[in-house]
Design a protein around this nucleic acid. Structure first.
Lengths: 121, 121
DNA sequence: GCCCCTCTACGACACAATGTCGTAGGTTGA
DNA sequence: TCAACCTACGACATTGTGTCGTAGAGGGGC
């Protein structure tokens, strides 16, 4: 548990909170023990990959996640879904298992969302 | 869509079908255009990482996925869940979105599974 | 007007994972 | 006995990532 995520991931996690952050900000939050340029490089690469956007604020760049956390989650789910293609049932079961394990009350929440969705149909 | 998964992934996908396969089998299925030793190496590395098991059959190794496809899916889901920690609601929503998009009738299936689970509680 | 401080741009290096083979030997059935 | 097949091992290229250092540009304060 609590395996250290990669530096890139940690940086993204911070940006997914939704704020616009300068290199200095990110450096302070996620890597005060690392060189400033290390963080700058990571952000630059993330930008090159299109995972974050940035705009100039004076001489400095200010970064922002290209997608919201929710969009990110949705895309992860979609990817998993596709990967599990042809095993829809096990995926549903696994999902319920995990939801229940993480927080039993979430099952009720899920049910509510499900009904809501059906009503809308 | 249909981005080519890595070679390792393709090999695993084949093994997750549950069969015990020799290098030759896998080579025939997934990489007839590649060198035989390429597949052998991939399987060997997968074994080193503990993702597959193997036993001798005569002089040759026969490989088998270390975990079933379902276990694999469950672990993927768990990992995602952990990553989305603190965003449980968006995850549930994203999940429903994706399930519905992939196959509307799966929602009913999900509901059935949910009820079944509640009854068992 | 000039200087210091901070930022970026760029490049460098190490390391691990992965794709991809080739070769050297061992084993075995015909 | 010999050809065919299998493994063991090592090799090489590429790519992604972590991690910095240096050089040069631009702004704010004196």
């Amino acid at each position: 548990m609590a395996r250290t995520p990669s530096l890139e991931r940690r940086v993204l996690d911070v940006l997914w909170r939704g704020d616009c952050l300068s290199v200095r900000d990110v450096h302070a939050i996620v890597g005060a023990d690392l060189a400033y340029t290390t963080i700058a490089t990571v952000l630059d690469r993330l930008h090159a990959k299109g995972q974050v956007t940035r705009h100039k604020h004076g001489v400095a760049w200010v970064y922002k996640a290209a997608r919201t956390r929710d969009e990110e989650i949705a895309s992860e789910v979609a990817k998993m879904m596709q990967r599990a293609d042809g095993a829809a049932e096990p995926l549903l079961v696994a999902f319920l298992d995990q939801v229940e394990a993480a927080d039993p009350s979430a099952l009720d929440r899920l049910e509510a969302l499900l009904n809501e969705r059906k009503a809308r149909r």
